[in-house]
Design a protein around this nucleic acid. Structure first.
Lengths: 368, 368
DNA sequence: CAGATCGGTGAATCTAGGG
DNA sequence: ACCCTAGATTCACCGATCT
């Protein structure tokens, strides 16, 4: 618990410090904060401009604070802030760091090198990531968070039951699904543009703080930005200490947090969202070996046949395409539900491929 | 393509090499394999197997030093096998490495340090992970795979359209959901126990090989285990080279792969990208009389017009140039795909000039 | 007013090939 | 090495406006 007593040196609770985060952390007493949440620059290495297929331009992260000269310079930066963070962390405290593949491997290795003990890596799956516009790679649809205690064997905080409750009674997994921060939650500047390029969703911090802190704990965020950590900490009855170099962000964060009211104790309810049935791509039946490339499907009416290819498309009678496209072409129809149209043979019987989809859905319904 | 000709040194295709993977890789010619898939040991306490960099003795010491030494040894091990792998990889080849939070950060950092260029990190979400029995942490429900090219700017293989097809028409994301390897797919030893502790599901390799290799490519797996990579590569018409130290695993893998049949060629064909299609100059439509000089084209949105000239350029509204240049100028856009932008009239209907290009391409494909 | 339509946008290492 | 040009390329969601 945080308490400013004569024994415990005074902490600047619920305030936003300015200046360089290393200097600011060095000014705080050692072994004094319960949790550190760090969202450091990712060291994205932009090349030129990127346009969407409709020719509109993508507003990319090109801020000066994300520019580093080399991997070595980034490692040096990481080492410095992490060492300062480690000093002020209580022995039983913990740290979270979020990043993408550009920086997270350097971050994770540095954590281990400094004696932190990794407890989990958590994947934030974005429901609505930005697509890969040029079709050159996979859609970058997740970010990685590392959760680590100060050292091996330390008694970290983990509210197992609370998380289990958040997850409707089954253990919380290491993959968390949330939308990116958009809409009214996204802070705007006076010009109506996004105020900060990388504002994190409050839902992410909500789960993280419920999981690994208790009411009254002190959470330090050395890259405070527009203060999501402070807003959620305040709402959940925790204390925060923010550090942010940019005056504009400090100002916005302070205004934002001033509006937040701490929830009454009994109000921390789970937001359970019922979801539609998950979409199952036909290709998954092939990947999983439920159907084999080269195998033949028959239409339910028995009139048509098509062969499965390795990428989950069908081919036959001069047509290629998805199960829906080929079904529609065969029937001369504008559209066709391939899931009910196509059948396969098992033990002499004709079975709808939809039964295989149902098997996968049954598995998936156990996930988030 | 893999071929053993006098020019290309002989590769031990579709075989399992024995011994230490570094020694085995060092015996292969440089720049010779298309893809490396590596599933290295995760365990950081590998003292017996690892060569200590300084040959110092490991005895009872404090935890921190012990952890540091073991990280150092693991890094050394990683560095060695990765360097050997890098030498035999073709300049336009790529590597995949799979791991968990115990080792993946060290692996990723080493990849970057050695000059590999990360293309994506991919999360394998397990539908049925082992629960965390003690309730002390989150259920560890995923593993991380890193996909990297040999160097920045290298021309890696990525079958974008095939993956999009596998995902039923939308871009494949960086999170892949599959069950862990169980049931009949899981190899058993004579005692009925699981033969290998970390056998990977074939579905994972199926997607990975469809995504980043072509039929005939050579895939090397330095930690072959029970040969999932070899089994799936064989099924998909790719070549493999396995390296495995344990006699028992080699034996099981060989038996397993011997039972696999390569899929027929037509099942292996996957959806291709337009980028791979032969280039057709617009002027050819004019030369062939499909469009006539002097004829007018309209933009798809109906707002603009241009006249065709005999050399296959367009003119109108004070602009001259290629179909792309004039479209871009009209729209005030940085670029424009003239093939989809421009339309002509036939029998009262507006038809995209791209349909004419397709006619020529269809003719050309018959010449092969 | 409900529903349809349209425009905007998000941590991105985002082209290929010929001269 | 650079320069230029052809031409390929997007998903989920939010909010404002229109019907």
């Amino acid at each position: 618990m945080a308490r400013n007593t004569p024994e415990a040196p005074v902490l600047p609770l619920d305030t936003i410090m300015s200046g360089d985060c290393v200097a600011a952390m060095d000014s705080l007493p050692e072994n004094s904060v319960d949790l550190i949440f760090a969202d450091p620059p990712y060291n994205l290495q932009l090349r030129g401009e990127l346009h969407r297929p409709d020719n509109s331009m993508v507003d990319a992260v090109d801020d000066h604070w994300d520019q580093f000269e080399s991997l070595k310079a980034y490692d040096h930066f990481t080492s410095r802030w992490m060492k300062a963070a480690r000093r002020i962390l209580k022995p039983d405290g913990a740290i979270w760091v979020i990043g993408s593949y550009h920086n997270i491997f350097r971050v994770g290795a540095t954590l281990q090198d400094q004696g932190f003990w990794i407890l989990n890596d958590v994947v934030w799956r974005k429901t609505n990531p930005m697509p890969n516009f040029r079709g050159m790679r996979l859609t970058n649809a997740h970010e990685t968070m590392i959760w680590a205690s100060k050292s091996e064997g330390a008694k970290y905080t983990f509210n197992y039951e609370a998380l289990k409750a958040l997850n409707e009674g089954t253990q919380m997994r290491s993959d968390w699904t949330f939308p990116i921060c958009t809409g009214h939650e996204r802070l705007k500047n006076e010009r109506g543009e996004k105020a900060h390029p990388t504002q994190k969703p409050e839902a992410l911090l909500h789960r993280l703080l419920i999981a690994t802190t208790n009411p009254g704990d002190v959470i330090l965020d050395p890259f405070f930005g527009t203060g999501t950590t402070g807003a959620v900490a305040t709402m959940l009855g925790r204390h925060f200490i923010g550090i942010e170099r940019e005056e504009e962000y400090r100002q916005l964060a302070a205004e934002r947090i001033a509006k937040v009211r701490t929830l009454p104790k009994d109000a921390l309810q789970t937001t359970t969202s019922k979801r539609a049935e998950p979409r199952v791509p036909f290709g998954q039946l092939v990947e999983r070996g439920m159907l084999r490339p080269g195998e033949e499907l028959q239409s339910g009416n028995g009139r048509h046949r098509a062969k499965i290819r390795a990428d989950g498309t069908l081919t036959g009678e001069g047509v290629k395409g998805s199960i829906h496209q080929v079904g529609a072409a065969y029937e001369g129809a504008p559209s066709c539900n391939g899931w009910t149209y196509w059948h396969f043979k098992r033990e002499g019987k004709s079975v709808s491929i939809d039964t295989l989809r149902q098997q996968i859905r049954d598995e998936m319904s156990k996930l988030n």
